[in-house]
């Protein structure tokens, strides 16, 4: 595989993309761990999500954005 006289530009392009993709993956993974840690901390304090069981029944078509809050 010969990348020619402009190999530096090709390698730099792929390196930047790789760095950005790794950054995005780290962002979602770390953010998830943070949210789960927060939920666990709240659960330890005895604060639970009211209506979680009700949410599992699968209400459909709410006309407000409030459902996304809960």
């Amino acid at each position: 595989m010969d990348l020619g006289t402009h190999a530096g530009f090709i390698i730099a392009s792929y390196a930047v993309c790789l760095a950005v993709v790794i950054g995005l993956i780290l962002w979602v993974v770390i953010d998830r761990k943070r949210q789960e840690a927060d939920l666990e901390e709240l659960a330890e304090q005895g604060i639970t999500r009211a209506g979680a069981a009700k949410g599992d029944t699968g209400q459909t078509g709410p006309k407000t954005s409030e459902a996304a809050k809960a």
Binding site: V28, R32, I47, A50
Partner: peptide, 23 residues
Amino acid sequence: VLHLMAMRNEILRRRVRAMRLKA
């Protein structure tokens, strides 16, 4: 993949916020 993972995180973040407000 990233969008679904980020949406899941956002839903969890809103749950945390709602629970903190309730507390």
